[in-house]
Every structure is written in structure tokens, then in C-alpha cells.
Design a protein around this nucleic acid. Sequence first.
RNA 1: GGGAUCUUAGCUCAGUUGGUUUAGAGCGCUGCCUUGACAGGGCAGAGGUCGUGGGUUCGAACCCCCCAGGUCCCACCA
Length: 780
Amino acid sequence: MELEAKYDPRQVEDRIYREWMKFDFFHAEPNEKKEPYTIVIPPPNVTGVLHMGHMLNNTIQDVLIRKARMEGKEACWVPGTDHASIATEARVVAMLREKNIKKHTLTRETFLEYAWEWREKFGGIILEQLKKLGASCDWKRTSFTMDPDYYKAVIRVFTDLYNKGYIYRGLRMINWDCEAKTALSNEEVIYNEDGEKATLYSVRYKVKESKDDWVTVATVRPETILGDTAIAVNPHDRRYKKLVGKYVLVPFINREIPVIQDDYVDKEFGTGCLKITPAHDPNDYEIGLRHNLPVIDTINDDGTLNDKCGVVKYTGIDRFEARKMIIRDLEKSGHLVGTQDFMTRIGRSERTQSIVEPKLSLQWFVRMKEISGKALKAVESGEVALHPSKFKNVYRHWMENVRDWCVSRQLWWGHRIPAWYFGEDVDDFVVAENEADAIKLARKKTGNASLTLKDLRQDPDVLDTWASSWLWPLEVFKGFDDSCYNRKSGKIIVKNNQDLSYFYPTNVLVTAPEILFFWVARMIIAGYEYAGKKPFQDVYLTGIVRDKLRRKMSKSLGNSPDPLDLIEQYGADGVRTGMLFSSPAGNDLLFDVKLCEQGRNFANKIWNAFRLVQGWTTDAGADSPENDLTTQWFESRMNEALGNMEEQFGKYRISEALLSIYRLIWDDFCSWYLELIKPPYGQPIGLNTYHKTLEFLEQLMKMLHPFMPFITEEIYRNMKQRDERDYLIISPWPGKGNFNRKLIEDAGEVFAVISNIRNIRNANGLSARQPLRLLIKSDH
RNA sequence: GGGAUCUUAGCUCAGUUGGUUUAGAGCGCUGCCUUGACAGGGCAGAGGUCGUGGGUUCGAACCCCCCAGGUCCCACCA
């Protein structure tokens, strides 16, 4: 067989992947004779495309799952996608806008039809891309967070949490996106890094029944003045002692509001007086609660002022336009006493970029403190181990200060909240898994047995995406299936079905630190709450993929290479090793295409080593004691490296494990071993040495396979005649072999001598290229 | 403001409980070699008072304190 001197991944990778698929090597089933090894993929956004972060993340998962598979474990890597409610809805809205269709002109049903259509069209792309990377996922288990069973599970869990008292509907200060008309979680609000320039207005309020006494406050949001219900000063501020208890008048409308004392107020800031607008500022809201202040909500959902503001000319005007008008009017009326530039941080919606308004709103919340206790302990005690462990501190800090989780989103794409309203009162609702149950409950609650579905209105909102993805490790194994939970006492406990009891808890979760709280912590909570068990043993937190200048890779910067282009150019093997060459857990990865080039070069090096060995002829008489010694040395060296790799894998030091095998192959095998045993051109090699060399090559391919699955499989299949189903991907991981440290050390000394000879020859202009054994003979 | 973490060769990072590390790797750099697997190759070499200043110790890159700088997370000031 004549082999090309250049290894071309394009002629190998797709073919090999199809062969693996043909024999169903990726699929795993409960098998009591084998130990399970499970990974669930962090489900990418269903409409997303592969980016460099995915490449890194999924390469690591594939390395781990392939190694486990070779170790004889029942290796199950569950793939899937996330419906990603906000992100996907935003994309569908944008797509419709291009067609000149506005979302609000559509019914919910029509909009969802468009969304599903969109999903059908683009939903599979990212999974196909993963196949290009070589991901050996159990595709038969592919899940989607809005699959019918998954949808049911999410609703079931919501209902259960409500029944247990962990979910409540409450008036809370939330971040409001006036453009998308939706609540945002804190995590979805972004702040400009350096802060932003704003104007701080000094506005004076007249003290009631005084001749010319005024109180001056500072504000950057004069439009909220009309919602003021108090002025607060610090209790220790002597300047204002005499004002406390008096009333001042709100400009324009002359509402009488009290001057109160609260520790929150900073004496040093501005004038030391703070206007209190409970409806439009979180801190003011808290102060309002403490002092029983009325709440006057002056801003509509779309950001315009409403009639509660009390001034007709501002009603219906957008808040920023109204601000301008109010400033002009304050100036005219003599209330504005000064302005100054001021650096502040302005929150913007991650999706729409519009400025976020704090707003009081009825939303659904999960009481996090009550259900997160076990999850905190699990990480503290190491029952769930974070890698690197420095994230333990971060995790603890967050869990100890966890806030209630606002789970409702004013969107259509997602799991619709299973609450039904039957009246105008805040308590006129029921929570149930389905309409039939809802009617029953509503009849009971109202005492009206003739109530029908028509009398009920389902909550229009959907659940936060994470309220579905936190069930991922359970529901991919159908944990909330009808047959697997019991409803005695109205509570749900996941019973172990066959898959679940075998594959759960999973072994490791590989994900980004940025979603440690959104997702990882919540999965741990859900795991203990519903299965009574942790969802995974280890959490491997990857770094962020950055460019050479340490900038985060992003679409807007245009500094992110297209992963598929990279694969086309360097092969999946090359890209995988490129990603891994520099990515210790938790450290950011400074990506450089040169690393992929290094990976591709490595593939080529291996290919040529194979080409050399494959071209040899053999002769039983050509074996020599020198060659025997050489094979003994290499065997030792190889086993030493294998031990190192095992150790590194145990600590999730994947890139170091790769470096071990990289050096073993490049330096020890190619540069020393092959050079030492290489027969003179055209001459045969000793039969024994030859067989040993093939054994070595095979073991090296095994050790490298998790990292570079394609080229190793190709060589494995081609190095000798094999059975139809004898593939490297399922071949056993090499057992621990002995190694002779003395032999390795001695060889090191010998090699140093040889290097020295080479140097001398080099200096004398003699060829250093000739086979090492001739070199040694001629100089000794 | 609260917390975490980092600072080792030109770059990116290892250095495990302080003593075989006279401080290592990969890439880069410099020089030399090149018809016999591979120029996408081979060999060799140069490069670091381990951020600053103290301290503990027989001994510190490693432990303690101070300072300087970087990164990240959380909260957020009208």
C-alpha cells in the first residue's frame, strides 16, 4: 500500500465517523456488567451555531467519554439543545421584523408556529457541527428542553414547588425591559464597564407651611419625582434634625410628603437628602417598606408616564422625553438649583440594549434559601467537587447570599406558567399541571361547581429558561415520566427508572464558570430535591476562549474564527489538540490558530511514522541485542508516560495528559526509538523488533485516541488486517505496565552522549542525518 | 464597597505537604544539519536575582505581613 506523505483529514474524518455510527459505538444502555460513565452536555441554544467556547467544552467532554469507553465503562454522553427562551424569541422576532411582521400583531399561537418552524429549520445545525468535531454523543438520546415529556416535567416541577410552598407570586422590584416588555433577571442586565456620564440634578422641595424653607435633593432621574412619597435623611445628620417629621411639597403637584430618617442615607453624598420613590428604585422600595410609605407607580410597561403622575402634559410621554420636559419645567418654576456631571452605571437589557427600569411587578418567585441548603453542603463537603477548587469559595458566597429567583418571563417561547386566574383579586388563581386539574381546583377554591374552562385565564407568561435546564440531568433520562413519580401527599419524588438508576448521578459536568449559579448550582438543588442525590460527581469549569490580545471572542468584535473553517483547514484532530494544548481547567485559553497548526503538524508526524513502519520488510535474522535493549527502554518509557497520563486524567489536567502523549510520540518514539531501530535504507528489520514496534504503535494510538480520534482510528484500522467490528474507539485502554526507571535514566545518559556526538559532527560539517546506529558505530 | 484569585524565560503556563529543581514545558528566537518516514523535518543553544519590600527557617518560587499591579465574581450610591 502506497501512502501519501501528507495526511489529509478531509479524506478520513467523515468516513471514520460514519463507520462509528454504523456500528452504533456511541450508544449506551444500562448494562449491569459494566460500570456506567455519564456526561450530559450543557445544551447549547437550539438556534445557535458552534462557537469556540463550544469547541473547547465539547472537546474536553469527548476526550473524557472516549477514555471511559476504552476503559470498558458504559460510556453515555447525552446530547441536546436548550430552547433558550429569551435568546430564541429575540431571534424569531428579528426574523419576523425582516419580513415586516410585528410580533404584537400576531396571536400567541401564530407566533409559536413561526418559532417552531424556525427551530425545525435551524435547530439541528449545532448538533451536526458537533459531529464534525468528532463528538461521540449518544445521538439516540438527543433531548430538547421543549420536547413534550420535558415540557411536562417542567410544569410538573413548578406545580410541585408551588404545592410545597417554595413558589409564590409577589410584588417585587424587578428589572424591567421597556422595549421587550419583560422582566429581566439581574444576570440579564449589563452595565457599561467604565460607567456612564449622567447629569445629577439638584432639585429643591418647598417645606410645607414655611415662608421660604427648602430641602434640596440630588437625582439623576427627575422624571421619578412625581412618584416621590418621602424625603429621607440620615438619623445622625444634625443639619436636618429640625426638618424631621415635617412635610415638603412635591414640585408641580404639591403632594405633601414626610421627611423621614433612615440609615441608608449617606450624609456625605450630595446634600445628604434623598428623595424616596418606592415604585421606581429598589432601595427606595426597601425604605418604603420600612416606613410604610405609599407606592405610586408612575411608569407604564412601555416606559411612558401614566396618569398617576398627576400632570396631564407628561402622561403618555416616554420617560426620557418626559425627563427633558420636567427639567425645563423645574427650571422655570425655580425648583432646579443646579446640575453637575456625574459618573454612574446604567443598566441595560442584554437583549434589547434599552435602559432597564426598576419596576414593581407581580412575578413568580422561587424561595431559594429554603431549597438550597443541601446544595451548599454538597459542595462544601466535596460530595460535588469543583475543578479548579477555587470556585468553591465563589460558590459558597453566592449560596449563602442567594436571593429569591424570579422565574416568570413575559415571553411566549417557553414553558407557559401553569397558573389559571378566575377573578380580579390577587389570590384568585390556582396552580395545576393541566386544565382539567385547574378546573377541579378552581371549583373547590371558589365553591362554584359550575365553573368551566371558559372562566379561567391561563397566565400568559413563560418560565425562565433555567427553570427548565435545571432539570437536565434528570429529564434526559425521563426522570419525571408518569411512571417514575408518585403523587401521594401531592409531592413529586423521582423514582429510579432503569436508565436513571444506572446513569445517574452523572460523573462529570463540563461547563463555563459564568453559569455556575444560573445552571450548575440550580441543577444541584434540583438533584437533591427530586432525586435525593447529587446530579454529578465532578464539575470541570473551563476557561473563556479569548484571542491573543486577551479579548473575549465575540461576534461583534469579529475576532472569533469560524470553527468549521478551522476543521476544514486543520482537521478535527488538529483543532481539538489545538484547543487543548493550552487550556488548564479554569484558566482562560488564549486561542491562536498556530495551536491548530501544531495539532495538524502532529497528525502529519504520526502519519509519517506510520508510513515508515508500514514500509519495512522483515527478516528474522536481523534482530540484534541493541534493538532488544532499545525496545525494552521504549516500553519502559511508554509505561511511565501512561502512568503520568492516568494521574493527570485523575486530576482533570487534560492538557497535561495530552502533552505527555505528545512528547512520548514525538520525542521518544519518533526522534529516538524509530531512529535507533531504523534499518539502513532498503534493508529489512528484525522480525521481533518489527512486531514490538507494531505493538508500541498500537498502544500509542490507544493512548492518543481520546484526543485525536480520527487519525488514530485510521492508523489502527490500517496497520493490520482486523475484524469488521474491531475498532480503536472500543478497544481496551492499555493496562498499567511496569517500567524500569534505571533503564530510562541510563538511556537518558546515553542519549546525551549521542547528542554530543551529533553536535561534534555538525560542527565538522558531517551529516547528522544518518541512522543513529551507524552514527554510534562509526564514532566509537 | 464586599469577596475570590493571580503576578515564574519574549508569549502562554507547570512547579503537588518549604529541602535532588544548580527553577521546568510548549510555542517563539538564534545557530547549525538536510538526497533514504516527515522542510509541516533534525540537533543544539541563548533567555528568569520566581511582581516590590520585610519576616519565619539551617534552608523559601512555595509559609506570614506590607505594598504595587492584573483578572474575575457579587452588591451597587441618590
